[in-house]
């Protein structure tokens, strides 16, 4: 059922990034990699039908009654979301989709930009399970890594990469994956979320290095529940999968990394 949840925090972190914290009953059962479909408009005013659709956001973390989200303003929907104030209500649907397949392997978490969102919750779970994991986060600039501090709560094995070198190493996050992966004593499983070119590059690496890799995909969504086939992505066997219901997390080897998903 859709839930009308209370906003506890909706805070600008810098670099157009925001952290949204809610008090929610229905999200208690969420697992890392699942997402929530939000109506971004004010619940206090009569509905407007623009933007019409909900907006999907990954669960960033879950602590007791509190579910948090990390989002970046990219258009009119996320802009309206940033206008919501603590104390207001928000209409949400979720948790939706299938999350990461957490294995016993040591883990390497790789986040590009705001794609880091589902990885914090994963880091939280891995810490609870006392599993070894390393987090590698990349962004264009230090500002766009405003979420790095949240990860420091769960691990000291945190590598930062920026394209302009303003914090951490300079380059693309994918440039450093082979090096970091090689430091594991036991072969790691990779978990990644970020822009498609980054995921495609990781898929090529995972294949070459014969490492398991789960990727969390993005696609424009309408229903978010698997009914409309609007969020389709191409699978290697020629069929289609629904990012919202069959994903958003997929083992990389089932996906077609050709032009169709790019």
């Amino acid at each position: 059922m859709p839930e009308i949840a209370k906003i506890i925090q909706n805070k600008a972190l810098g670099g157009n990034l925001y952290r949204l914290v809610l008090e929610s009953q229905s999200l208690q059962k969420a697992v890392p990699g699942q997402f929530v479909h939000f109506l971004v408009q004010s619940q206090a005013e009569p509905p407007t039908w623009d933007p019409l659709l909900r907006r999907p956001l990954s669960v960033y973390d879950l602590e007791e009654e509190k579910a948090s989200f990390l989002y970046r303003i990219v258009g009119r929907g996320t802009k309206q979301l940033a206008n919501r104030r603590p104390g207001e209500k928000i209409d949400l649907l979720g948790p939706l989709g299938r999350g990461f397949q957490i294995t016993q392997d040591p883990a390497l978490l790789i986040g590009g930009g705001v794609g880091a969102a589902p990885l914090l919750f994963l880091a939280h779970k891995l810490k609870e399970k006392q599993q070894k994991f390393v987090v590698l986060l990349g962004a264009r600039t230090a500002q766009e890594l405003a979420h790095a501090g949240d990860f420091a709560k769960y691990t000291q094995d945190l590598f930062l990469v920026t394209e302009d070198g303003s914090v951490g190493r300079r380059g693309l996050v994918t440039d450093f994956v082979p090096e970091v992966a090689a430091q594991f004593k036991v072969r790691p499983k990779l978990y990644a979320c970020g822009p498609n070119p980054m995921l495609a590059s990781l898929a090529a690496f995972a294949k070459e290095a014969a490492l398991p890799l789960d990727v969390s995909l993005e696609a424009a969504m309408a229903c978010g529940v698997g009914a409309c086939f609007g969020c389709a992505c191409q699978l290697k066997d020629g069929s289609m999968a629904r990012v919202c219901a069959d994903g958003p997390v997929f083992p990389y080897e089932v996906l077609d990394w050709g032009e169709k998903n790019g």
């Binding site: 696609a219 424009a220 086939f229 969020c231 389709a232 169709k260």
Partner: peptide, 9 residues
Amino acid sequence: GNKPPRLAE
């Protein structure tokens, strides 16, 4: 069905 992307708001 058709090639993605299939939705535009």
